[in-house]
Amino acid sequence: MNKNERNARYNAYVESKIPKTHNFPSLFYAFIIGGIICVLGQTIKDTLLSIFDTMTPQEASNWASIGLIFLASLLTGLGVFDDIGAIAGAGTIVPITGFSNSIASSALDFKREGIIFGMCSKMFIVAGPVIVNGVVASIVVGLIYLIIEAF
């Protein structure tokens, strides 16, 4: 038996040995907590709109995002967010709270290496790819829009 064949057999065997997890509870928590976070955002938005007559829906939804970002950073600082995240999984990662948590947790973690080279430079180790890919993709979309407009 050559090495590649042995490795392939071993990996297939390992795959069969990995215990099957119960998917349903984690899906359920992701659904519930993800839903609650979105409802919270909607509540902030609607409350602001009802209080301030001059506010546009766009402004209100920006404030809702910023409110959730604040909350997620605070919970991260207090050390609660990772406990919620361990239960909710994608339920806290996918909403804007996950973006905020990834920045705040990196900042907290690398504080020991100093403010400049630790905290500030490592802030985006997790969130960086999100911004980079989003920005590049949006520029591509904008360029395509310009090209279509030209014809």
């Binding site: 998917n23 992701a30 993800g34 839903g35 409802v39 909607q42 909710a88 994608a90 339920g91 990662i93």
Partner: peptide, 17 residues
């Protein structure tokens, strides 16, 4: 809002698992 938001998160959860 609740069901759509929850649904999007659970799709991501399925992908993770």
């Amino acid at each position: 809002v609740f069901f759509v938001g929850g649904f999007i998160c659970s799709i991501a959860q399925v992908l993770i698992i």
